[in-house]
Amino acid sequence: MAKELVLSLDGQRFSVSFRKIDREQIYGSIEIEAFDERAIRQLLVLAADGKTLLDKGGTALATLDEKGNSVERNTLKAVNLEGEELPVVESSFSVRNDLEVAHVDDYLAQLVKSVYVLDPFEGGDIDYLLDHLASGLIYRFPFSYRGGTEYDNAFVIGNGSEAFMIIGKQAKFQYSMLNQAARLDSIEEEEISGDDLDFDLF
């Protein structure tokens, strides 16, 4: 069942539905198969003890206090950097979401979590929004899928006649001054995701 998200621009309301998209849907994917001389082999995770092997789903995330004791997640409180308790935010599906014009620098400063393509909800009309996006404008609004402790940033951006919603978090950039030189180390970059198709956009 499609979910309805209500956006508002210049006092006009638009109901949109959205669909998550990813790279595999556009370009396809690559799976790796590994063989030894006998048969295909399974890729597992080996714990630091050198003998415990686990598969997907073999791990859990625990919340621990300062002494290392487990803490129930439902007893936690969300606070800001000053230690003040934060109010619970509503799900973006239960409110009208007012679009504000965003600067491209803010958009480029996002660490992207997910990408959605937008369509009119149940045959509605979003031409007014599409026209504004076609002029190159980017819009933003605070977004929370289920509600909770904090919003993500949602950017609404167009390409051709399509509208997209990019969900992300603001990156922590730090401008560098002369006296703030970094130290080179030999630590290898960790691979940031799985295997993929080679492609050339140009």
């Binding site: 969300a78 606070v79 950097l81």
Partner: peptide, 8 residues
């Protein structure tokens, strides 16, 4: 990411 929320 810039962290603006912590849990206690």
């Amino acid at each position: 990411p810039k962290r603006e929320v912590a849990f206690v």
